[in-house]
Amino acid sequence: MTAASSHLPSDHPPVRFGKVGVLLVNLGTPDGTDYWSMRRYLAEFLSDRRVIEWSPLYWYPILYGIVLNKRPQKVGKAYEEIWNKDLNESYLRTYTRNQGELLGKALTDLPNVKVDWAMRYGNPSIASKMQELQKDGCEKILVFPLYPQYAAATTATVNDEAFKALLKMRWQPALRTVPQYSDDAVYIDALANSITSHLATLDWEPEVVLTSFHGIPMSYFKQGDPYHCQCMKTARLLRERLGWTKEKLRVTFQSRFGPEEWLQPYTDKTVEKLAQDGVKRIAVINPGFVSDCLETLEEIAGEAGELFHHNGGEKFTHIPCLNDTPDGMRVLEHIVRRELQGWI
């Protein structure tokens, strides 16, 4: 929909209006696995005050003096192992793009809704995509941080960046953000289906299934972050949906970084101990990740599997994230349609 005025300069483009934008936002991805691409990405990510809450006076000398000199090579090698070679990009970018395109097709009955996607860190940026949506006539934008469980270091920093983008806009669209959906029935059903369908492809039954969530520092939890509670609720509902015991479906936390204590039990320590205690067959799923990425493909499917086998385990399987599967897309479509009510 456009409106043109005879009072506008002849070279002024027609003003578009009347549309609603949906912006899917995932964590982010480096543009490449080389040192400088990794350094740019890590610098943006690790300088976010929501991610690392230490004082910059203390943290920045460590970040720029040590971390950004050593970590890009190490993380770059890890990304190289799980890089989508066909498209020369990370799988997180591949899946997020696919999710945006598939969601757009699923919402064709809503002709004024335009779907796009962005990354909190790296490209395409939240600000650039919000500007594109606004120029395309989106007077309202639904920002969807792709995190089922809320954490200040994930959901909140996406929302921060979206509202920050408004500061530079002359004509601001109205903004809504999608809340956490850790206990949504459609989401729980999708997780349960992904577990049962994956296990059905195996010729063995896991003794234990770990739900491995990304960790946060214990200090964040003590300051009131609801993340831990929402992870536990997701696991409880999933356990009830499958009819499993607490011993069969267990909660762990992965990806700790730095010297602080993080949420426990730790995934790597649990995998190691299970194998040492004589458990021979386990499966791991990552319910907090909407798309497979470095933390699921390299850290869990790769490293955790090796750790389990090294300590005496025999059978290990990683259950993929929902990604762009029909079940995964059903969850995203369900949440978006619910959150657009009153706007369309």
Rank of each mutant, 00 (worst) to 15 (best):
R241K: 15
Q172A: 05
W244D: 01
D34L: 02
D116H: 10
Y41R: 11
L166F: 04
G342E: 08
M218Q: 14
G215L: 00
E339S: 02
C293H: 14
N193Q: 12
E303V: 13
Q131M: 09
A275M: 09
R176Q: 02
L249Y: 08
T201D: 11
S55R: 09
P326S: 08
E132A: 13
R16K: 15
T234M: 02
T108S: 12
E314N: 12
L63T: 05
I216W: 03
K246Y: 01
Y121Q: 14
I62H: 01
N88I: 06
Y41I: 10
D327K: 05
N88L: 10
T96I: 01
V22S: 09
R239F: 10
G313M: 07
G32T: 08
V75I: 13
D189V: 00
T94Y: 14
S182I: 01
W343D: 03
L107I: 10
V336C: 05
T196H: 00
S212Y: 13
L202D: 02
R71N: 03
K280N: 10
F316E: 04
D48L: 07
P124Y: 09
A190T: 09
Y147P: 13
Q172R: 15
T325Y: 11
W171H: 15
Y41N: 04
Q254S: 13
S47V: 08
E81G: 00
E132N: 13
G243E: 01
T267W: 12
E261W: 05
